[in-house]
């Protein structure tokens, strides 16, 4: 079975979780033998942008020593053989047309999403 993971909710509790929970569960399932591809759409395309920095938060005497590093987590998925796509129009609409994205990420026009969905057995839209 092959599953397309569609990630569209962006920066939801990522500071508390130290990651994006859907990127995380994708890593965990890949480790359990899952065959997965990932589509970043909507504002989640920002996960592919290099230079994200969530460091430095502190609340009173508590300091966050291990902030989320989402672009690194996305890059690690690609290194594990998971195909990761971003929707071109969503990238452009957010002013990221010329931005440097994670190496190996694949740009997909919105019109190409149905064909990407067709090649998976299931589509999980998170």
């Amino acid at each position: 079975m092959k599953v397309l993971q569609v990630i569209q909710s962006a920066y939801r509790a990522t500071l508390e979780e130290q990651d994006d929970t859907i990127v995380w569960i994708t890593h965990a399932m890949k480790g359990a033998g899952a065959d997965l591809e990932v589509l970043l759409r909507g504002s989640a395309v920002n996960y592919a942008v290099l230079g994200q920095d969530a460091s430095g938060l502190s609340f009173g005497s508590w300091r966050q020593s291990e902030p989320p590093k989402i672009a690194e987590d996305v890059a690690a998925l690609i290194k594990k053989g998971v195909g990761v796509f971003v929707v071109e129009e969503d990238v452009a609409e957010r002013g990221l047309g010329n931005a440097r994205l994670v190496d190996g990420i694949q740009r997909l026009p919105r019109a190409g999403i149905p064909a990407l969905m067709d090649r998976s057995d299931q589509v999980w839209m998170w």
Binding site: R110, A111, I113, P114, A115, M117, D118
Partner: peptide, 10 residues
Amino acid sequence: LAAGIVREGN
């Protein structure tokens, strides 16, 4: 997206 999926023959 739904209309696009139909266009693919689904």
